Simulated scan of single mutants.
Amino acid sequence: MKPVPKTSMATLCLSGEMMNKLEAIARAGFEGVEIFVDDLQSSGLSPRAVGDRCRELGLTVMALQPFRDAEALPSDLHRKMLDDANRQFDTLADLGGDFLLACSTTREDASSESERAAETLNDLAMLAAEREMRVGYEALAWGRHVFDYRDAWQIVQQADHPALSLVLDSYHILARELELETLATIPGDRIGLVQLADSPLPRGQDLQSLSRHRRAFPGDGELPLERFLTALDQTGYQGPLSLEIFSDALAVMPTGMAALQGKHALESLRASKK
């Protein structure tokens, strides 16, 4: 069995072309990579070519993301969602990965009932399992009905499928100033992925706009990431810590420099916890 990568970076963190991003991530010493759907589509490259290059560089494809509006949709849209998911699983197979990251829906026509969300995510997890894939569910801070990791965890528990796990993103949790005591009680083996990002404190700013433009590497913002990791330690989580940084500043920084800066920031944060 291969060891689980301990550090990962999303391609969306970096400027430049897809292959340059992958090479920079590998050179910086990351062991895994999250493939951002928009980056893959704009690259003009086939998923198989990207997956082959990841393997050549020794990078594990940790996730394909984001898969939007996965839960609690009306029946006709739910069926379309499953068809879309099947195509994403095809892409994942070509990439050599097995984890699809699904974000909480922002659609107005989605049901607010957690039972409906759990039922539809169970359908998605069943489809994933048939393909020998997995799904992680993440609460977006601006989700229509699910914008709190505690609600997302409740839905994952209700869905009750081994192919479905919870994704925790420090930005979505800390920018909303959510308590971390509940996080510390979640079994680590039910957490599929942990994403890290710092940012300025919101101070009344729109959370989506702040997230899209002003995320930062750990230590370059004001969020209490050490408290987040302290709570995470109590879960027994053994998976990777992955940087997911949307940033206007990084969008103009040289690709290799940004990757190295991210790795240094992540290692500094990990060292502060020892």
Rank of each mutant, 00 (worst) to 15 (best):
D90W: 03
P47R: 02
D98E: 07
E71F: 05
L95Q: 08
N20I: 10
K80I: 09
D76H: 14
L22A: 03
S112Q: 10
F67S: 14
E108V: 08
D83H: 02
D83N: 05
L92K: 07
L73W: 00
R48Y: 01
L82N: 01
L82K: 09
L73C: 06
E115L: 10
S104T: 04
G16N: 09
F89R: 07
R79M: 05
A85S: 06
D52M: 11
I35W: 07
P66M: 04
F30Y: 14
N86S: 14
E115M: 11
G96H: 04
G16S: 09
C103K: 05
E56I: 06
L22N: 01
L95E: 02
G32Q: 04
L124M: 13
T91Q: 03
S75D: 12
M62Q: 14
A85Q: 09
I35S: 04
G97Y: 07
S15Q: 10
G32L: 10
E115K: 09
E23Y: 11
D109Q: 14
L92G: 11
F36H: 14
Q88F: 09
S15L: 08
K21M: 01
G32E: 02
L101Q: 08
F89I: 08
F89H: 05
S43R: 10
G97R: 08
R55L: 01
S46V: 00
M18C: 12
E108Y: 10
G44N: 03
R116W: 00
T106D: 06
E17C: 08
E115D: 13
L59V: 07
S42F: 03
F67M: 14
E115C: 10
R107Y: 05
E31N: 12
C54K: 03
L95Y: 02
S46K: 13
S42L: 11
D84A: 08
E119S: 15
D90I: 09
R55S: 13
T106L: 14
A72P: 05
D52Q: 15
D94R: 12
L57F: 04
P47C: 07
F67I: 12
L100H: 07
E71I: 13
L57C: 04
T91D: 00
L22H: 00
P47G: 06
S75T: 14
R107F: 02
S111N: 05
D38R: 15
A63L: 04
G97L: 10
L95W: 01
R48D: 01
I25R: 13
P47T: 03
L121N: 00
E34I: 09
D90K: 04
A70R: 07
E23Q: 13
